[in-house]
């Protein structure tokens, strides 16, 4: 037990040492590159049947964004909501929910895996992100797609955000979902629009989307790690 205590306090001290955590993150580097080497860019995540649907799709994190702006949009059924898509694109656009719904849609019954360990199965309908990208014409130097959400995460107004690379952006199952289980996307699950990114963990799939930006680097955005939870120490590559 004493040696266990020494081991533990050594590991705890090491966890706060930036040199150690840098070495530990070799694991993330290896996982990202090896997983990409053994899976094809377009291989699909497993899809399920209606019989597999979770009776109620669990909401995690924010279940109602605490901002006057969001409340006003929600009260009005999101008719005034617009998704801004800009950054390194030829043609920035603002899209309403009706415009998104009028575009080609994809419906998929997939398993949502939370970083905490649980999974839930839901039926998602939305606009493939590739359709929106085709509309705005990304510039050649665009490397990441940033997703900015409406939900404040702390008292200083930090809002949830996330980022993915262009490979994931063009994956056929990467959709901007506006419906869950054949009904309008509920507020606890991210209304009016959330990302579905079926080959990564749940925290990558930003809810309450307001703004999409194409960038060449996220080093100068918020904490510089590419997402709210990434800035808190979680992996940017959440493929496991």
């Amino acid at each position: 037990m004493a040696s266990g205590g020494v081991l533990l306090s050594a590991c705890d001290a090491a966890s706060r040492n930036p040199h150690v955590t840098k070495v530990l993150s070799i694991g993330e580097f290896l996982s990202q590159h090896v997983q990409h080497a053994v899976t094809s860019r377009t291989a699909l995540a497993q899809e399920f049947t209606e019989a597999d649907l979770s009776p109620e799709f669990r909401s995690n994190g924010t279940d109602y964004p605490d901002s006057a702006e969001y409340r006003a949009l929600a009260m009005n059924g999101f008719v005034d909501w617009r998704l801004r898509v800009d950054g390194l694109v030829e043609r920035p656009v603002e899209l309403s929910l009706d415009q998104l719904r009028a575009m080609r849609s994809r419906t998929q019954i997939t398993r949502h895996d939370c970083v905490e360990g649980w999974s839930a199965i839901g039926k998602w309908t939305g606009t493939p992100l590739s359709e929106v990208l085709a509309l705005v014409h990304p510039l050649a130097d665009a490397r990441y797609v940033m997703f900015y959400s409406a939900d404040p995460m702390d008292d200083w107004g930090t809002r949830y955000y996330e980022s993915i690379d262009m490979e994931d952006a063009y994956h056929p199952q990467t959709i901007l979902a506006y419906a869950l289980n054949d009904a309008t996307l509920p507020i606890p699950n991210g209304a009016p629009l959330r990302l579905r990114l079926e080959r990564q963990l749940g925290y990558k799939m930003a809810k309450y989307l307001m703004h999409i930006e194409l960038v060449d680097s996220f080093a100068r955005i918020h904490g510089g790690k590419g997402g709210y939870w990434e800035d808190e120490g979680y992996e940017w590559y959440a493929g496991i």
């Binding site: 533990l8 306090s9 590991c11 705890d12 966890s15 955590t21 070495v23 530990l24 993150s25 070799i26 694991g27 993330e28 290896l30 996982s31 970083v115 905490e116 939870w229 808190e232 120490g233 979680y234 992996e235 496991i240």
Partner: peptide
């Protein structure tokens, strides 16, 4: 590991030593 509730760091240790 770590000795407090710290999922992000637990994952870093786990995947490094998994490799």
């Amino acid at each position: 590991i770590p000795g407090t509730q710290w999922l992000a760091m637990g994952r870093r240790w786990h995947f490094f030593f998994a490799w």
